[in-house]
Design a protein around this nucleic acid. Sequence first.
DNA 1: TATCTAATTTTGACACTGTCAAGATCAATC
DNA 2: GATTGATCTTGACAGTGTCAAAATTAGATA
Lengths: 201, 201
Amino acid sequence: MASTARYHHGDLHATLLQEANRLLNEQGIEGLSLRKLAERAGVSRTAPYHHFKDKNALLCALATQAFGQLDEMIQRQLERGAKENIQDFVREYLRYATEHPEQYELMFGRTLWKSGQPSDELKAVAYRSFRHYAEGLGRLLQGRLPANTDPLRVAQASWATIHGLCRLVIDGIYVNRVDMEAVSEQAVALIMAALKPAKND
Amino acid sequence: MASTARYHHGDLHATLLQEANRLLNEQGIEGLSLRKLAERAGVSRTAPYHHFKDKNALLCALATQAFGQLDEMIQRQLERGAKENIQDFVREYLRYATEHPEQYELMFGRTLWKSGQPSDELKAVAYRSFRHYAEGLGRLLQGRLPANTDPLRVAQASWATIHGLCRLVIDGIYVNRVDMEAVSEQAVALIMAALKPAKND
DNA sequence: TATCTAATTTTGACACTGTCAAGATCAATC
DNA sequence: GATTGATCTTGACAGTGTCAAAATTAGATA
């Protein structure tokens, strides 16, 4: 029962996911190799293959976990229909992305969506997250959108804005963490300026 | 003088860049290996190292080239200060990105900006492109921005939107090529709605 | 023209990666 | 107590980027 080396690990599946997350945070996706991971879990190179079909499957499981957290945050942040908490939501989203840059990269990066093959589970939770966002945003903007404005398109466009900002910041291209907030506030302010005033304003 | 196999290639530097671009288009960044590239150029595995310090340097050169094209497009599209050609610009940008998805990934992806090290040249042309965009956009929106609106922030925010949309489409996440145009039109329309009318409207 | 030098290219090697096949070990069931 | 199936290991292979040392050649120098 002691944790001394024994042939069967006991709960390798969970340990792999846990250590993979640690490795991801420490060394990024590029540094996350199955061999390093196996070594950390105290197991041989090919042991993980009995718990995950291949590396892609393991990464999908990781990303699915992370999407669960993001989804939870989205719902928590948008559920209570406060007046002007779009700004709060954006702030929270940016905070999540910049505090978990490697998971964010994994969730939305081409590693899974383009090079690899996103699992059905991953696609499901990803689309569900977006749906929750679209629904929540729709509730917040209800009755305030100009004519000829499709709420779905607004959701897609605004997500693209937030997402693009996250990527520019995370990858360190045009925007840094200091400016990020100012940029996002400007973006939200511009959109709000295009809206009709809320009833309780 | 004939193209039969000879020890010295002649212009390996240019050939490498050319073949690298082909390989990039055919197999994506993941499929672009120095060894495949060398084989295509008809040269041994390590020959490229006498023309590029390492793989990172070669990719930087590729990305720098591509940024040159993008920059040229940006200037061409924004220089003539037409009335409502923001929509045209966005359309053109999206077209470039979706027609050159692999180069776009290389230009803005983490391969160079995060994992690797972007060369000074690459950073220079990347920032110059953004500056040209910001200047061009500033010209188009001159006098039409609401009070308390920093043109730089607007440029960053709008670039983030376009960029985010490109990535979502290219990586095939929330938006597909068909919806892309509708989403971008919605985004532009929202921003335009927040602007003061132009003088010559 | 002959020689030297420096640029260019090659071969060999190393560490690292993901993954397959075959065998070893163990837990639980019949 | 024997068997079965899950779990883990060892060995192997092809592929990667990159370094060191040797080979080849073009161009400058004498």
